[in-house]
């Protein structure tokens, strides 16, 4: 059975995008090891509400690691210490009695803080709107099996498509670059035959939008890949670079 642990929790509090933030420190006692990290925050919030105080605001939704909503920077890692897992999938048994756990929001100019640990990631939607699609109308398509796609290509596209849009790549990047996200989306669509006709246009449009929104330049540190909860590879970034350069040379 899991043991209970007690630890110190330092949580970033910030009232709004323009306000000055600070850390609040809480002492957490006897938290069972099978509590998820977010459930631990639920416990904290219940205690705060009981004391008549405002709870800590953080984004979360599905709590099974797929919606990409949760977004905490825990002890220097986006989504905490585990690899290939989101914050909601971290269980307290990963921590030790007496630890100091520091929780911060994603910090990036592209993701302004809304409140406490909640940030605004609508920039990702805007990048998608610039070209993250295949232009096909409803009801127009041919039979699904009319397009044969070799399994390795389909699998590679699937790996790129497993991106959950959580923003950990930007949070991890010392340059605040969104290249892993953009490249994953571009790769998924550019790899597939259905996406080929618009491949170059897509690479240009999505990259231009990313640049416009103030994300940084990729310097290939690979921090994004290391912290990505879905282990999306930077080979996607190489593919985006390739497609983008190709597009520009063609122009």
């Amino acid at each position: 059975m899991d043991k209970n642990i007690s630890f110190t929790l330092k949580v970033w509090r910030q009232n709004g995008p323009k306000e000055k933030g600070h850390f609040d420190t809480f002492q957490m006692e006897d938290i069972p090891g099978d509590t998820s990290f977010l459930e631990m925050l639920d416990i904290l919030n219940e205690q705060l509400i009981e004391a008549g105080k405002e709870p800590v605001v953080f984004d979360h939704d599905c709590r099974e690691g797929i919606c990409g909503m949760c977004s905490l920077y825990i002890n220097g890692h986006p989504h905490g210490p585990a690899t290939g897992a989101t914050t909601c999938q971290i269980y307290m048994r990963r921590f030790n009695d007496g630890d100091v756990i520091t929780v911060e929001p994603w910090r990036s100019a592209g993701f302004p803080v809304i409140k406490d640990l909640m940030v605004d990631r609508s920039a990702y939607d805007k990048i998608m709107q610039a070209g993250g699609f295949i232009s096909v109308g409803t009801g127009a398509p041919q039979d699904a099996n009319a397009i044969l796609i070799p399994k390795p290509i389909a699998d590679e596209a699937m790996d790129a498509a497993s991106c959950i849009g959580c923003g950990a790549c930007v949070a991890a990047c010392k340059n605040g670059s969104a290249m892993l996200f953009v490249s994953a989306k571009v790769s998924q669509l550019n790899l597939l035959p259905q996406g080929k006709p618009e491949a170059l246009r897509r690479a240009k449009a999505m990259l231009a939008k990313m640049d416009e929104l103030g994300f940084g330049n990729c310097t290939n540190t690979r921090a994004c890949e290391a912290e990505c909860p879905k282990c999306v590879s930077i080979s996607n970034i190489a593919r985006l670079n390739r497609d983008f350069i190709k597009a520009k040379l063609k122009d």
Binding site: S108, G176, T219, A226
Partner: peptide, 18 residues
């Protein structure tokens, strides 16, 4: 890139393996 990082810096930093 520094501008893209925003004004606040992380209090705790850890370099991932790799």
């Amino acid at each position: 890139n520094r501008a893209a990082r925003g004004n606040e810096r992380y209090a705790v930093n850890a370099r991932p393996k790799n």
